[in-house]
Nucleic acid binder design. Structure first.
Lengths: 249, 249
DNA sequence: TCGCCGATTATGCCTAGGCAATTCAGCAGG
DNA sequence: CCTGCTGAATTGCCTAGGCATAATCGGCGA
């Protein structure tokens, strides 16, 4: 144990990438190149530590993270193996709509189409898990990219969970951004589906009625309560959700 | 240090949940309940270790994982703060189709509709990043749940990246499963959109032409190369992608 | 008052151990 | 032949330290 709490100055392999990352990369390299194939055993903590000349905890961290990421599977006594991955989970980034649009270089526009207190449909009530006398704020907004309709947002807010929303006009600020700044969220639940455009949605989004829309529904939770439920509809032809996982180039 | 390498028998707070998880939960509880709000400072490694009576590494692991998950933000010297989260990423689980169907209790069925060598369209060629003389295998398959069409799969495989595919009939095994067992993947790129059903897709999926379909496209990579590109189409009305992030009840 | 530079401090990574929990394999007994 | 027990292998979690690095804050000089 000399410098940096024992990191040997000898190797210093890749300048200064942390040791545990070097190990992760080495393992990934074996898998990527096909030397280790799905189902094959991977050396255990102790063996890895010996090969890399590091403490077992360091090797352990590398292997644990790989397991967390689904690259390998670990079981006590049975040892570690390269995961037989099905298709791995898919990370979709759903950024704030205004930032998303501006990131593409387009000009962001926002219009409040309607705002109503108490217009609570039965299904909205159910989705908000609202009691019979719960009050809501209903909003219909349109987000534009370069003056063209980009996303139609229909939202219900439980006024008991976010009372301040009642006194906000939402004429100049989108409800998403307002809520992010005023209500602490914890969790969310999403649902993605394809739908045919209703007449109203078609009119606002400037597509034909019946045209395919990509619809994203989100419920946002705070302490077991649904704060808000929102339906985001995009013209299917002009909109995609993009995502990447693992490594590629 | 007494039992379990020093874990004090005294508290043993929650029976036997690991110490680092207890710390994570405690921090999350502060945030969930609104005591710590976005932007507020979070005690550092040393302080947490002191409060919980554990080693700094244990506190460090809890805080590091929270940072990895995007719950808190950490900066040297500046300390840790509750993250100002925008909308967090959205984890969609895309399981293997046969397992997915069987998980719902339905009977899984598979049919190979067409198989062709060399039928490479220009767009497929581009998406596979194929040279002008690259050879591909094209497949059209249908996955059924309880005898009803569930997913239409159209797939191109780069035969240079997966030569063995040429000699596989794919009559009894789906390409997804076959590839998982024969070609080591590393990364994937997904794209989700809504589309109107083409006449051919409508016929296979037993919907009206023009009906909304939820389409998932996936490119799978291995060492900078695209191994396979697949288009998975689902009847929009009968299919949704479901997901949850964070915690809710 | 402004800008630079060192001291301070919190995070990040590491070691070298040790105990706990899980589970596989083999063996004994019914 | 099956069942249950036991030993051993392996991962998982923990401690108690130490050095490295980054970023902020004060002080000092111009």
């Amino acid at each position: 144990m000399s410098d940096r709490g024992g990191r040997r100055s000898a190797a210093e392999s890749a300048e200064s990438t942390p040791r545990y990352l070097q190990i992760k990369q080495a393992v990934l390299e074996q898998i990527r190149s096909g030397v280790w194939r799905p189902g094959d055993p991977v050396p255990g903590d102790a063996e890895v530590a010996r090969r890399f000349g590091c403490a077992r905890m360091t090797a352990h961290r590398a292997l644990r993270e790989l397991a967390d990421e689904g690259v390998i599977e670990r079981r006590r006594r049975a040892g570690s193996r390269v995961a037989l991955r099905t298709t791995r989970s898919l990370l979709v980034d759903v950024p704030r709509i205004d930032l998303e649009i501006e990131a593409t270089g387009a000009e962001y526009g926002y219009r409040l189409l309607a705002r109503s207190l108490g217009r609570t449909t039965h299904s909205a009530r159910a989705r908000l898990r609202l009691g019979p006398d719960g009050r809501t704020l209903w909003l219909l907004c349109l987000h534009l990219a370069d003056q063209r309709p980009y996303q139609l947002e229909e939202r219900w807010i439980d006024l008991a969970a976010a009372p301040a929303a009642e006194h906000e006009s939402f004429r100049d600020i989108g409800p998403n951004r307002w809520l992010l700044e005023h209500v602490p969220f914890v969790g969310a639940e999403h649902l993605i589906r394809a739908e045919a455009a209703s007449r109203r949605a078609a009119r606002h989004l400037e597509v034909e009625p019946g045209a395919p829309l990509l619809v994203l529904e989100r419920r946002t939770f705070r302490e077991q309560r649904v704060v808000t439920w929102v339906r985001l509809a995009h013209p299917g032809a002009r909109y995609v959700l993009r995502t990447a996982s693992g490594e590629h180039g």
